[in-house]
Design a protein around this nucleic acid. Structure first.
Lengths: 195, 195
DNA sequence: CCTATCATGTAATCCGTTACATGATTAT
DNA sequence: ATAATCATGTAACGGATTACATGATAGG
């Protein structure tokens, strides 16, 4: 029990419930509609995680008596404390950018007949699409929308930068680098045989 | 067996071995020193994944006869095919940005006594540090370094943009948005009781 | 020769993903 | 009424993360 640390999803759930009690489905909607734009959390986790947090005493579960008998979670004092501690502690952790497009770009060296331009165009288009979505959002939400708005600015910046990046790649596609350089490493290798 | 799909790590391993055969440790070094800058893969995966790919017939394993008896993996024709198919297929998938800093920023609304400036400064510093690391790298690697260099450009752009973003937050910290708006939702809620 | 770090894994557990399932609501 | 979609979960599995462990190599 003791060693179960809190993960980002834990803080996501604590964060939302710190505003007001919520069901798993509400957590899902809220998240999909905000943080989910840049960091997706699978909905099954938003059903599993509150149960875990309840066991840890950071949430409390109530249940509807009729109809869907939904579980409604509210944050406890310990929960609020844990969330506050986490929020107050600055972090120097670097973001992970899990970008399939970049990964594909990186390994294009493996192909002689690749089509980088197609990749770059698909990526540029995807980023531009998200960018206009963000712009639309930005123009509709109130100006005093707190930190949610600040996060949205990060999204705007990111999408702009990457649309720009991919457009540049499409315009001036790099050429593959042929690698053939196993000498150095082979010196350190022992004799090798099958199986 | 059949249903085991290939994940990003699979393609990472296929990608590296497509250049030349490698041990798990080499995969780890190579990755940590390139893609790992923006997308980290735990080293234990780089021991587990090649075994999996070997079972699927996409890699072949040889073993040293003496000393450490390391396992050396080379790509098979099927492997090369799978990698090529993947590389040639453009993707519109959007990147996931798993950024603890942004997540913390987003939920600062939950605090009345938060210290956003400290957070923003820590983040800005981290991004600037990585940025100068990239710049150093960029100035040392050969100009015809293929797609690896292109990927590095993305890194530079990203770090610059985010350093800029956090510096802006530090200079003009947003203020919290007080939420209290449970009316709408409560209308749809059934009666509730403990346990 | 001793120590530190590099290199090479294994184990246990938990998280994440996908798929399935089904009861309410809303739209036509 | 029926179909479609919304809402609310559960199950199963495999991948991901963290810890642990230990044998080589190099540096002092």
């Amino acid at each position: 029990m003791s060693r179960s640390t809190l993960t980002p999803i834990s803080y996501l759930v604590l964060g939302w419930t710190s505003f007001e009690p919520a069901t798993s489905y509400e957590l899902k909607r809220l998240s999909a509609d905000s943080v989910g734009y840049f960091w997706e959390f699978p909905h099954s986790q938003l059903y599993a995680e509150p149960a875990r947090l309840t066991k840890l005493g950071l949430l409390e579960e109530k249940r509807e008596l009729t109809g869907r008998r939904r579980r409604i979670y509210s944050i406890t004092e310990e929960g609020r404390q844990a969330l506050g501690d986490w929020l107050r502690e600055p972090t120097s952790e670097e973001p992970q950018i899990r970008d399939i497009g970049l990964l594909k770009l990186f390994f294009q060296d493996a192909l002689e007949d690749g089509n980088v331009v197609a990749l770059a165009q698909a990526q540029e288009q995807a980023h531009r699409k998200k960018l206009s979505f963000y712009e639309e959002l930005d123009s509709t939400i109130p100006h005093e929308a707190g930190f949610g708005r600040a996060t949205l600015q990060a999204g705007l910046i990111f999408e702009r930068a990457f649309a720009e990046f991919w457009s540049e790649i499409a315009a001036h596609p790099p050429t593959a680098f042929i690698r053939s350089d196993r000498r150095a490493r082979d010196k350190t290798r022992k004799r090798v045989a099958h199986e």
